[in-house]
Each structure stands twice: as structure tokens, then as C-alpha cells.
Design a protein around this nucleic acid. Structure first.
Length: 429
RNA sequence: GGAAGGGUGGCAGAGCGGACUAAUGCGCACGCCUCGAAAGCGUGUGAGGUGAAAGCCUCCGGGGGUUCGAAUCCCCCCCCUUCCGCCA
């Protein structure tokens, strides 16, 4: 959530910033009104509450002094004030809850240099690689589910037999390739990012602090018996690792990487991209995550995008970097870069990474702060997260891109150390 | 799964119905001392809300309750520790 003080101090700036994302200025005015009402209600309640405390204390004093009659009289007064306090408290809490709801509903302020726009079509292609788009051969124009079936790498039918549709089952070289990709990425990030293997089933509170609940409840798998949620991304456990804590500035930036399975119900996407690995309920992903000071954040954002790009170049996949416009940036982000690889078999650009700078929007919700060097009051950290990378779609792009005229698939040399040196998946037969 | 003990400020840890405005220690900051430092001594030091300020209010894992009054008593939940059982 954004800082309510911004709304109090400079409401026009908030309207202007959120207006770039399509938020109605009237919503901001409504929030300001609710906030004023809540503050008045809380003030009134606090006055009465103070009276109760004073009277209660006097009851004790009178009782110790042996003046029972006076104690009883004061207790009666206090009781009456207490009833009034409870009534006012109900009013005040309801008012505060309204403010909180209105505040949660507001998205983050976009970064000043995020491009303007209303939707996906307005995203800006920041750069692409390689400079000259490759020419693809006929052999590369085969979708990965066909290649996977032909070479025994991917068995979507048996996956569906076990778990229903959109649960991939990788076999043989296909399974090894997936494992290789995860190791390759984690090793690449090991120079600066601490590797973490978090739990993938988490408590409700953990889902709430990243904003995945309650808003996106429909998207998440829930184990009712134990009231645990399957994580949709490693961002969820990583954000909560220091939930409610105060870090030292010296610990920042705190950089983490985690490879986990991610689970998504894709409830709103029924019928879209249902074939192969384009959209699946369970996929592996290596996530980059950082807590930082506000000053460190812009450079970190760039370096995280650069890391994801470096992997794609090493994998030899054609890609483009999208600077998301204000209308397409996710709720909690101020700036987001998406990476899309071109996959020739399906002839589509596939989103394989999304790197976001969330400023203090998530930290405020999760209450994660740091104590500035030399003391002073704690300040909310900035959080950044990004995939590097999401493997199901990379797997698809690699298999399609690497396909040869003879039906074999050539994989990038960068993966050789993780594939026992075998970078060619032999043709069928 | 059974039994017991716990969750208190940056950390450790006392408090177990009314002076809690949460002891004490560590850490940290400033000062004295010193050529400088350590040690020692002194002073200060949680977070949040509201307010011009004084002040007032909230926060002792979370939620509910009892009471004139709850860190303290009761109920539910979460988490941690120990022992037992089971288990890859």
C-alpha cells in the first residue's frame, strides 16, 4: 500500500501519478475524506479512553485508601465512560477499516520514467537480442509438444492422467533438461545472491503479506485440511522471511535466489494457451529477490534484468525486453520489465521473466524496515523481484529453437556441464 | 499423534490484576576522562498514530472474553522448544 501521508500532504501529486495508471481522481478524494473522518473518530475515542484510564486509576487509589464508597462511585463513572468508549471504538475501527480497504485498493505509484499507456499494446520495446532477427528453418517450425512427444521428452497425456490437464510430466532427457536449467541459473547467480530453498506450502499470513491474498485467492491452490497454500512464486516465501523485522542498513541490499515449483490455478485463463507448456498449473522457476534501501533500488532493478538477459543470451534464445507502460504494470510495482523469448515452433513471444521494483509498497504491508546507518527511526525497505527464469516456457523455446532437420535437438553449450556434456537430444528411431 | 514448557523493546531477560511511564543487562549514541583509544563514569536510547506544541492514544505472538482496570486471569488459533510415539 502507498503511504497515506502522501495523500494528506500532496493529494494532487498522488492523483497525477495514479492518473497515469488510469485511477479515477475521485477515488483519491474519497480516500482523503475517509481518512479525515477516521482521524476525527479516533481522536474522539482516545479522549474518552483516557478518561476511563484516569478513573480506573482513581478507583485503585480510593480502594487502597479504604474509601469504598468513593471507589464504588468512581467505578460507576468509569463503567459509564467505558460503555461510551466501546461505542466510539466501534465507530472508529469501522472508519479505519474503510480507509485501509480504500488504501489497499490503490495500486503503487508508477516510477516517473515508466512509459505512459493504458494496456499491453503500449508497452515499449526497450531492446531486443540479437540485433538482427535470426532466420528460422522449417525444422524449427514444429511446436514443442509435438517434438516432446516424438522424442519422449514430454508426456502431457500422462501428466493429465495423474493430475488433470496442464500438469506437465517430463521424461528422460526432457526431465534432465529441466533440472539442468535450474542448476545453471542458480549457479550463475551464486556470485551475489544467496541460494534459498524455501517451503512451497505456506500459511495464510504469508500469502497475505505479498498481496496474493485475499485478492488473488482464486488463483491459488489451497490445502483445506491444514490451511496451507501452494506458492504461486518463490516471491511469496522470500518476502516473508523478514516479515515484521527491522534490518540493519549494513545488511542491505539483501539478495536472495530460490528455485522452486510454482503453482497457479489459472482460473481466469480457461481455454487459453492450453496446449503444451505455454500455460501450466505447475512449473519450475528460479526467482531473484532483494530488499534494499531506496537509493540502491534503481541499480538493482537494472542488474536483475541484466542477469535474466545474460541467461537468455547464454541459452541462445531470441528475446526482447519490454518496459511496461503505466497501464500494464502490476498492482504493487512502480516499474516492471518483462522479458519475452521468441519461440519459432509456436511462432509466439513467450513471457519468461518479469522483473519489478515495488518501492516500499510491499514492505509497508509486510512491515519490513531497516534502521539507517547511525540510528534514527526505521524506514521501510524497497523490494525487488524477478524471475530468472521460468523454465517451462524456456524449455519449450529451447526445444523448438534447437530442432534440426533430422529431428534431433541441439541444446546450448552453456548447459553442457549440467547435462553430463550431452547437448544433443538424439532424433527418434 | 501424546505430554510439558514457552512467545515481552535491536538482542537477552524480569514482571504473572491497580505507581508497567515495562526492571536489569548487552548493544547503540553523546559527554567526561585521555595525546588518542580501551576500561571506567555519566546521560540518553523501542515502534506507530494524532497534534502547532504540551499532550493524548495504540502496541508485551494473533483473535475473542472477564474486569471499573489486563503483559498479568479465561477461551480459540499460530509459532517455537523439550521429551515420548511414528516416519522418508
Amino acid at each position: 500500500m502507498i503511504d497515506i501521508r502522501l495523500v494528506r500532504d500532496d493529494i494532487d501529486a498522488v492523483k497525477a501519478a495514479l492518473g497515469r495508471r488510469g485511477v479515477d481522481p475521485a477515488d483519491v478524494d474519497r480516500l482523503a475524506d475517509l481518512d479525515r473522518a477516521a482521524r476525527t473518530a479516533v481522536g474522539t475515542r482516545d479522549e474518552v479512553r483516557a478518561t476511563v484510564k484516569v478513573l480506573s486509576k482513581q478507583v485503585g487509589e480510593a480502594r487502597r485508601a479504604g474509601d469504598t464508597a468513593r471507589a464504588e462511585q468512581l467505578a460507576d463513572e468509569s463503567r459509564a465512560a467505558g460503555d461510551e468508549e466501546r461505542r466510539l471504538n466501534t465507530v472508529a475501527e469501522a472508519a479505519q477499516e474503510e480507509v485501509r480497504q480504500a488504501l489497499l485498493y490503490l495500486p503503487n505509484l508508477p516510477a516517473p520514467d515508466a512509459p505512459d499507456g493504458v494496456g499491453e499494446d503500449d508497452n515499449v520495446v526497450a531492446r531486443s537480442w540479437p540485433d538482427v532477427a535470426p532466420a528460422y528453418a522449417e525444422a524449427q517450425r514444429v511446436p514443442h509438444w509435438e517434438i516432446g512427444a516424438e522424442l519422449g521428452l514430454l508426456d502431457m497425456e500422462r501428466g493429465a492422467k495423474l493430475s488433470g490437464s496442464m500438469f506437465p510430466l517430463y521424461r528422460g532427457f526432457g526431465a534432465r533438461l529441466l533440472r539442468a536449467l535450474g542448476s545453471f541459473a542458480l549457479d550463475s547467480h551464486a556470485d551475489e545472491f544467496e541460494e534459498v530453498r524455501p517451503p512451497t506450502l505456506v500459511l495464510t499470513g504469508t500469502m497475505v503479506s505479498t498481496g496474493h491474498l485475499p485478492k488473488f485467492e482464486e488463483e491459488a491452490y489451497h490445502l483445506e485440511r491444514d490451511d496451507l497454500w501452494a506458492i504461486p512464486t518463490a516471491e511469496v516465501p522470500l518476502t516473508s522471511m523478514w516479515r515484521g523485522d527491522v534490518l540493519d542498513e549494513a545488511e542491505l541490499p539483501l539478495k536472495l535466489t530460490a528455485g522452486t515449483a510454482c503453482y497457479r490455478r489459472e482460473a481466469g485463463a480457461a481455454g487459453r494457451d492450453t496446449r503444451g507448456l505455454l500455460r501450466v498449473h505447475e512449473f519450475d522457476k528460479v526467482e531473484l529477490f532483494a530488499y534494499s534501501t531506496p537509493d540502491q533500488a534503481p541499480a538493482l532493478l537494472e542488474s536483475m534484468v541484466a542477469r535474466a538477459e545474460a541467461l537468455l543470451r547464454q541459452l541462445g534464445l531470441q528475446y526482447r525486453v519490454l518496459d511496461l507502460c503505466t497501464g500494464d504494470i502490476g498492482n504493487s510495482a512502480a516499474r516492471t520489465f518483462d522479458l519475452e523469448v521468441y519461440s519459432p515452433g509456436v511462432d509466439m513471444w513467450l513471457e519468461v521473466s518479469s522483473v519489478s521494483w515495488c518501492t516500499d509498497y510491499q514492505a509497508r504491508r509486510a512491515n519490513i524496515r531497516y534502521r539507517p546507518e547511525g540510528g534514527g527511526t526505521p524506514v521501510f525497505v524497497h523490494t525487488l523481484n524477478g524471475s530468472a527464469l521460468a523454465w517451462a516456457r524456456i524449455w519449450a523455446a529451447l526445444v523448438e529453437t534447437g530442432r534440426q532437420a533430422d529431428g534431433s535437438v541441439v541444446l546450448p553449450e552453456a548447459l553442457a556441464p549440467y547435462l553430463r556434456g550431452e547437448t544433443v537430444i538424439p532424433a527418434a528411431g
